[in-house]
Amino acid sequence: MTLLVKALSTLALMLAIGGSALAQEYVKGEVIKVDAKQKKLTIKHEPLTNLDMPAMTMVFVVAEGGMLEKVKAGQAIEFTADRVNGRITVTGIK
């Protein structure tokens, strides 16, 4: 019985840690350039705390090509970014 309790406790802890990692904060930024052919956005952004990055202007790939249709150069956005397959990727835009 104690093995079952330990296993369930471990599972609950893993879910709690994993759930907090999925809850990303949106960061303010400005779209500088949209490269639809390469599926990339250049964004001047505030610090990305989840990636431990200071504010800067950088090029991101986008998780989904449809995101590029939502934005244009000069537009203020709020977005999330994360490492996906080793590349820093925009994962959400609002």
Rank of each mutant, 00 (worst) to 15 (best):
H45T: 11
D52M: 08
A76V: 11
D52C: 01
A16R: 07
I32M: 10
E46M: 05
L68C: 02
V27M: 06
L48P: 05
L48M: 14
E78G: 02
K33P: 01
M1N: 12
E25T: 08
Q38I: 02
M14H: 10
T49K: 13
K28G: 12
E25G: 06
T57A: 15
V59E: 15
K39F: 04
A36Q: 10
L4S: 12
M14G: 02
A76Y: 04
L48T: 02
T2V: 15
K70G: 00
E25P: 06
D82M: 01
K70S: 10
L48Q: 09
G86R: 00
H45Q: 04
T49I: 04
I77N: 10
L68K: 00
E46C: 00
V27S: 02
K70P: 00
T10K: 09
L13P: 03
G19D: 01
L48K: 06
G18W: 03
D35P: 04
G66W: 00
R83Q: 13
M58D: 09
A81K: 01
I93D: 00
T10W: 06
T57Y: 06
F60N: 05
I93H: 06
T89G: 12
K28S: 15
S9V: 10
T2G: 14
R87S: 11
K40S: 07
L51W: 05
A55F: 01
A76N: 14
L4P: 00
E78A: 09
S9T: 15
V59F: 07
A73N: 08
L13N: 14
Q24K: 13
F79C: 06
T49N: 06
V62I: 05
G19E: 01
A81V: 05
N85V: 11
V34S: 02
F60C: 09
I77C: 07
F60S: 09
K39S: 12
V5M: 15
A73R: 07
L48C: 07
A73K: 13
M56N: 08
K94D: 14
K40M: 12
V90I: 14
A36R: 12
V61K: 13
K37D: 12
S20K: 10
I43F: 09
V59W: 07
L8Q: 15
G66R: 08
K94C: 03
G29I: 05
T2N: 15
L68H: 00
T42W: 14
G86V: 10
T89C: 12
I32A: 09
Q38G: 04
F60M: 13
I43W: 06
M58S: 08
